[in-house]
Design a protein around this nucleic acid. Structure first.
Lengths: 338, 338
DNA sequence: GTGAATTCTTGAATCGATTCATTTGATGAC
DNA sequence: GTCATCAAATGAATCGATTCAAGAATTCAC
């Protein structure tokens, strides 16, 4: 009968008739302990159901085995995929990932950074929302480095892993033109989001190069419902004024457009083609599979975590680097007439 | 210039010219400290950029301020919504939620429970995958209680929060019959999943009561791709053998069916109606909005966390309870011909 | 058998915040 | 002026694992 609200190291040592130092060695450097004592200790651990107290461990050793990750929205599949990638790398390093959700709220963001500092995480992966850069720099001075995720670092003070949104925007528009669009439109906003700005710029440049105009439908957010409304609006336009193809700044928006067009009897892609951005699972799972610009989501998380461990393990010699992935066009039925 | 890799309590005490006990009181029982010293201490904290060391705190006080949550799949929106609800309640109690992903893998599940034990979380919210009940009971004996999420506790050893899947299944089938189905089918599996079993049983009973047969398409999993294949299979059937309505055990499966039917030119709901289960966001966002059985996802997480805190705060007097929500029919276009 | 080299083991000191029995100080009653 | 009462402040002891200098045990060469 194991039970008891917790055996500690000294109990294990007593039962195995060795010193506490030896038990600690079995836990942390088993190869340095003779076979004989090692088995005795392991048996004692088993018998007592001993579980190491992580608080005590990290208090003494000065380091925890965890990373903090702060994302804008856990409900967004993009971020859970990125988190999954980061978690895998963390696991390889025998660290655990504490996933937190700022929910695009500067107060919560600060609160979670407080928490991470208190817990003395080894490092932080963050998609910043509010003004946190000064704070992150201060945290690094104190030994908690961070890596920016899905944001290009504007200074060389941080590592970052992001995606070339300008190139993605251009690819989307080039594709629309290549399938015959002469009146493309861009839907998205707010332009204070760097991603939106970049995607639009890429698309606008590409449109200019191709010699077609690019209509702009600016939105206050990137949600499904917004897409539906814009779709209804487009439907109400004169057919010859209506765009013949739409590039939506993300897939949620694109799915909204798609639903609206389906409800109103506009055929996709015959009457109007649609391409989104992010290539979330549901893009390919829509009734009319949605073309999209795909980001290597898990890979983003993995690289970010790797960069973070680089900095953690090699603090003095570390050189910050900016990893920029080029997103990839995935053409599906919503832009390809058969 | 704050800097320095970390001021500690004694530094604050020295700077503020008070004892360490007083600083600790300012942090934990500010009302017991005179205004004068309190402000001095707060100023010192500010000046030094002091951040409390959570490891030391919880080592001494014997309790952490965190809950562990272990879900089957972070990529599934159902679980992130449940987690969100739990997180909100945790936050009210000034606790943080450590979200972990067993990914339907018994090994990972055990590993994360190890982690939770080591970190001495105050309690665990879990959707069990493997054989963990004995272990959970042992953990409770040692002071770490747990609440089952999305699973009815089969014994009265645990609190649980779940949904009445039998009732949900019945509601789905009643609805199909009410919109005129005479050849309904159930798609889902494996039947080792209690949820699938229950949803099917509810539907089968309802079909019997209504005097219609219920065709069964058993599947090895509940994924989108599987739904698509079953859809293709149904399409290949003789029209008079083909179901005129399908109840899919979850929305992913239903979306797969929907895509297949759209691709093959079967009209939904005219040729075949579809209803899913879970009512994930994407159900309503599909081109043809999908009818579904809706579970109060956030509420499930909230109630589960509340029950857990009940047990944490009132250990001896706590009585386990099983909360069972009744799911709700949400009828949309995929079952409603216009 | 001796001394040196090597491998294991030991246990007291330590990490930093909290606790609580005790002391100090203030207020007021008589 | 004395004593009781109550509020505020003190600081040594404590939580449990890790560390590391020092000691014990073993191996090996000659």
């Amino acid at each position: 009968m194991p039970s008891g609200p917790g055996a500690k190291l000294t109990d294990v040592a007593a039962l195995a008739r060795v010193s506490v130092g030896t038990v600690s060695n079995v836990l942390n450097r088993p190869e340095q302990v003779s076979f004989d004592k090692r088995t005795r200790v392991l048996a004692a651990i088993e018998e007592l159901g001993f579980v190491r107290n992580e608080s005590a461990r990290s208090l003494r050793s000065g380091s925890t085995r965890s990373l903090g990750m702060l994302v804008l929205d856990v409900r967004n599949p993009f971020f859970t995929d990125v988190a999954l990638g980061a978690e895998n790398v963390a696991e390889e390093h025998k660290h655990s990932l504490i996933l937190a959700n700022s929910a695009e709220n500067a107060g919560r963001e600060q609160a979670y950074l407080d928490l991470f500092e208190q817990q003395r995480v080894q490092g932080v992966l963050i998609t910043p929302f509010g003004p946190v850069f000064q704070r992150l720099e201060r945290m690094r001075e104190r030994g908690i480095p961070s890596v920016l995720v899905d944001r290009l670092a504007s200074t060389d003070q941080f590592c970052s892993v992001s995606v070339d949104d300008v190139a993605g925007g251009a690819a989307a528009l080039d594709h629309l033109v290549s399938v015959g669009s002469v009146r493309p439109a861009f839907v998205g906003g707010p332009f204070t989001l760097q991603q939106v700005e970049d995607r639009y710029r890429g698309a606008a440049d590409a449109a200019a190069r191709a010699g077609v105009p690019l209509q702009l439908f600016e939105t206050p957010d990137l949600k499904f419902e917004r897409g539906r409304r814009i779709g209804d609006l487009m439907w109400s336009l004169q057919p010859d004024k209506r765009p013949d193809a739409v590039f939506a700044a993300n897939d949620q928006l694109a799915l909204g457009l798609l639903q609206s067009f389906a409800a109103n009897g506009l055929r996709v892609p015959e009457d109007i083609a649609i391409i989104g951005f992010d290539d979330i699972d549901f893009a390919s799972q829509s009734s009319i599979p949605l073309s999209s610009i795909s980001q290597p989501r898990q890979l983003i998380g993995e690289r970010a975590a790797q960069l973070l461990f680089d900095e953690i393990d090699d603090e003095p010699g570390h050189v910050h680097s900016q990893v920029v992935f080029t997103p990839e066009l995935v053409a599906r039925q919503s832009t390809l007439r058969r």
